[in-house]
């Protein structure tokens, strides 16, 4: 493929070049034309593009010259240019690859892989340890809950007792107060009774005198 590109570009180049008669590159171009060896050069492709895009014939000639000038030196070495050129490079690269594989295995894949696996195992072991202690944690939690329950019961018992004591005291005081009030009331009533009796007695003693007086006044001097 590259050789056909090369061939077409060669024809184009020789067509472009002739108008500039004063160019010293002409013989070189001619020599390239004569050179029938298989050759592939993208450089020519590049300059072909440059040549096509330029408008004046002078620049085209310059492009042709520029394309031609480095070529003679390369032309001799280009004879073997090939895309599919199998040689000793293949086994050498294969050997290099195998060596690289062994080296990477020794310093990278195996040691780091082992290290990572060990770390994974350690983390997993720690995690399972944590899972095992979860039973203990539950026991402790239950203990804590029991302690809390006992404490709450104690407190409520104490509270109840306190309430009872307080209410008993209150009742006692209330009863005392009531008794005193009753006693005072009873005393007051007794006093009243006594005064009443006294008054009645006083009235009784006066009744006779009063009735005499009333009789005297009603019955005129009987």
């Amino acid at each position: 493929m590259s050789s056909t590109v090369m061939a077409s570009s060669r024809q184009l180049l020789s067509r472009i070049a002739p108008p500039s008669t004063r160019t010293p590159a002409l013989p070189v171009v001619a020599r390239i034309d004569r050179d029938k060896t298989r050759r592939s050069s993208g450089g020519v492709l590049t300059h072909l593009a440059t040549a096509l895009s330029s408008r004046s014939a002078a620049i085209a000639a310059a492009a042709a010259m520029a394309a031609a000038s480095p070529l003679p030196a390369l032309a001799e070495q280009m004879e073997k240019a090939a895309l599919f050129d199998f040689n000793l490079t293949l086994p050498v690269i294969a050997a290099e690859f195998l060596l690289l594989m062994v080296a990477l295995d020794k310093i990278y894949f195996t040691p780091l892989g082992k290290f990572m696996d060990e770390r994974d195992a350690a983390i997993r072991a720690k995690l399972s340890d944590v899972k095992d202690t979860s039973g203990e944690v539950k026991e402790l939690e239950e203990k804590g809950a029991a302690v809390m329950k006992a404490a709450r019961a104690e407190i409520s018992a104490a509270l109840n007792q306190m309430k009872k004591e307080t209410s008993a005291e209150l009742e006692q005081k209330l009863a005392e107060g009531r008794k005193r009030v009753e006693a005072e009331l009873a005393e007051a009533l007794q006093n009243l009774e006594k005064q009443k009796e006294e008054t009645i007695k006083a009235l009784d003693s006066q009744i006779a005198a009063l009735s005499d007086e009333i009789v005297k006044k009603v019955l005129p001097s009987a």
Partner: peptide, 10 residues
């Protein structure tokens, strides 16, 4: 040319 030459199969 020196910078951008495409050298296929060289």
């Amino acid at each position: 040319y020196d910078i951008s030459g495409v050298e296929v199969g060289q």
